[in-house]
Design a protein around this nucleic acid. Structure first.
Length: 452
RNA sequence: GGCCCUAUCGUCUAUCGGUUAGGACACGGCCUUUUCAAGGCUGUAAGCGCGGUUCGACUCCGCGUAGGGUCACCA
C-alpha cells in the first residue's frame, strides 16, 4: 500500500473523567479498522479544557487500552502542548478575514470581552457518512461560532480540525453524537484548506432505558475500569463491545481479536443505538473463563479470592487445591468477583476446613436419626473398603447402596456432613478434593454428633 | 422547540424485493441430577402506523408516530 493511501485514524479522548465504555467501543472500532487496513492510529489527548482535564484520567485511559490490548502509535499527542500550531492557523484565518476578533458582552462570569469567531459563509453542507449515507445541514443557524477564547486558547472544534489536518487523518470514526458537529468542522476544514476526511458515525451505546449512557445517571457501569475490577476478562469485553453495533452477518458469537480484525467492516455497522446488555457480557465472559489456561485461571482466582481465604493457613496447606477446584470454579463463576460472593456464602471454606455441623440439619427430610446414623456408618465402611479413592469408584460404590435405601437418604447427609451446606457440587467431587482421610473424619464427626 | 439521526423478538442482531422472518442472550419446559450450578434437547417471542412504487414488500419512496442525539467562551 502506498503512503498516499495509508489509512490514519484517531483516538481523541478527553481526559475529563474515567474512561467511558462507549468511548472504549469507539476506540475499538477505530483500532479494528486501522489494523485491518494496516493503517496508523493517532492517540490525541484532547485536553484544551485545562480546568476539567486531569492526568489521572489519561492514565486510566492508558491502563484500559493496555488491558484490552488496543494499541496505538507513538508518540501520544496532547492538545495542550500544541497551542503554537493552533495559533498559527488562527492568525492565518484572521489575516484572510475568515475569522475575526469579536467584542463581546460578558453576560456570565468568566466570559471574555474578546473572542475569536469564525466568519460563517452560511452555506448548506452535505457530507457522506459510510454508515448512514448522505447527511445535509444548513449551517446558517450556527452563526459566527466561536473557535477560540483567545489566540492561546482554541476551542474543541478548531483544535480538532487543525489536528486532523496536521496529522493526516483519513478516517474519522466516532459516535453519533458528533453528527451535528460535522458541518461546522467541514466549514473549518474549508477555511484552513484541509481535505474532507471519510466520516463514519457509530451508533450510540445506550443504557437499558435507551438513553445515552452517562456516569451521572448510570453510575459505575459506564466506566471501563469497573469491568476490570469486577473480574471480567479483557477478551470477553472486547468481544462483547465489538458486537454492540456490529456483526459479520454469520452466527458466530465468540471472536478473538484476530478474527475481529479480519472480519470487521464499517459497512456492517448498525445504524441504531445499541443497549448495553450485561447479561450477554456475562455469558460471553463465562465462555472465555471456561477456555482459560490453568495458570492464567489460578492467577486470577488468587487475585480475586478475598484475603480471609488466601491468608488462611488451612487454605495454604494444600498447594494442589486450586487445581482441584478449577473445574468447579470454572463451572460456577461468571466473573471473578463472584469468588468473593462464594466465600461470603461459605461455599469455598469447606474445601480446606471441616464445617461446623448442626445436628438437626443432618437428616434428610423426615428421615430418622437411626437411619441416618446407619447410612453414615455404611458410607464410612464403604469408603474404607475402596481400593482406590477416585470419584468414579466412590460414586459406583455409594450408588449401589443408595439406590437400595433411597438416594436422598444417603446423598443429603453426605453432602451436608462434608460441606455444612444444603447446596454444593456433588459430594463425590467434594470427597475426592478433601481426600479419603478427611472425608471419613467429617463423616465420623457427624456420627458422633448424632449419637450425643 | 429548531436541526439531525434512527425504527425486525424484552435485548444484541440476520435478511441487501420472493424465507415456514434465522441466530445469540434472557425467559419457560423437558432430560440429566440428592441439592445448587453446568450441560443436552426444546418452547414462547418481532417487521411502529398509513399511504404509495411493484406481479410481489421487513426490505424502496412519502407522510405520520415514537425513541434518541444535538443546539457552550465543554469535549
Amino acid at each position: 500500500m502506498s503512503d498516499q493511501n495509508k489509512i490514519i485514524v484517531r483516538f481523541p479522548p478527553s481526559p475529563t473523567g474515567l474512561m467511558h465504555i462507549g468511548t472504549m467501543r469507539t476506540l475499538l472500532f477505530n483500532f479494528l479498522y486501522a489494523k485491518q487496513h494496516e493503517g496508523n492510529i493517532v492517540l490525541r489527548i484532547e485536553d484544551t479544557d485545562r480546568e476539567r482535564s486531569k492526568q489521572e484520567y489519561a492514565e486510566d485511559l492508558f491502563e484500559n487500552l493496555k488491558w484490552l490490548s488496543i494499541s496505538y502509535d507513538e508518540p501520544i499527542f496532547y492538545q495542550s502542548k500544541r497551542t503554537d500550531i493552533y495559533k498559527k492557523y488562527l492568525h492565518i484565518l484572521i489575516e484572510k478575514d475568515l475569522a475575526y476578533i469579536s467584542k463581546e458582552a460578558t453576560a456570565e462570569e468568566g466570559q471574555r470581552a474578546e473572542v475569536i469567531r469564525f466568519r460563517n459563509p452560511n452555506k448548506s453542507i452535505t457530507f457522506s457518512d459510510v454508515i448512514r449515507g448522505e447527511i445535509t445541514f444548513d449551517t446558517t443557524e450556527l452563526g459566527d461560532f466561536i473557535i477560540a477564547k483567545s489566540a492561546n486558547e482554541p476551542l474543541y472544534h478548531f483544535a480538532v480540525v487543525v489536528d486532523d489536518f496536521e496529522m493526516g487523518i483519513t478516517h474519522i470514526i466516532r459516535a453519533e453524537d458528533h453528527i451535528s458537529n460535522t458541518p461546522r468542522q467541514i466549514l473549518l476544514q474549508g477555511a484552513i484548506g484541509a481535505p474532507l476526511p471519510i466520516y463514519a458515525h457509530l451508533p450510540l451505546v445506550l443504557a437499558p432505558d435507551k438513553s445515552k449512557l452517562s456516569k451521572r445517571k448510570h453510575g459505575e457501569f459506564v466506566s471501563a475500569s469497573f469491568y476490570r475490577k469486577e473480574g471480567y476478562l479483557p477478551e470477553a469485553l472486547v468481544n462483547f463491545l465489538a458486537l454492540l453495533g456490529w456483526n459479520p452477518g454469520t452466527d458466530q458469537e465468540i471472536f478473538s481479536m484476530k478474527e475481529l480484525i479480519e472480519q470487521f467492516s464499517l459497512e456492517k455497522v448498525q445504524k441504531s443505538g445499541a443497549i448495553f446488555n450485561i447479561e450477554k457480557l456475562n455469558w460471553i465472559n463465562k465462555q472465555y473463563i471456561k477456555e482459560m489456561e490453568s495458570s492464567a485461571f489460578h492467577e486470577m482466582v488468587l487475585k480475586f479470592l478475598p484475603g480471609e481465604i488466601t491468608d488462611d493457613k488451612d487454605f495454604q496447606k494444600n498447594p494442589n487445591l486450586l487445581s482441584l477446584l478449577e473445574p468447579i470454579l470454572k463451572d460456577r463463576i461468571v466473573k471473578f468477583s463472584d469468588l468473593a460472593e462464594m466465600a461470603k456464602q461459605g461455599e469455598l471454606q469447606y474445601y480446606f476446613r471441616a464445617p461446623i455441623l448442626q445436628k438437626e440439619k443432618v437428616c434428610y427430610k423426615k428421615s430418622t436419626l437411626e437411619n441416618t446414623i446407619t447410612n453414615l456408618e455404611k458410607l464410612v465402611s464403604l469408603i474404607k473398603s475402596l481400593d482406590s479413592f477416585t470419584q468414579d469408584a466412590l460414586k459406583e460404590a455409594v450408588d449401589t447402596y443408595s439406590l437400595e435405601v433411597g438416594r436422598g437418604e444417603v446423598m443429603h447427609p453426605m453432602r451436608y456432613c462434608l460441606s455444612g451446606q444444603d447446596r454444593s457440587p456433588d459430594p463425590f467431587t467434594i470427597a475426592t478434593i478433601i481426600g479419603r482421610g478427611e472425608t471419613i473424619s467429617r463423616l465420623q464427626v457427624a456420627i458422633n454428633l448424632l449419637k450425643e
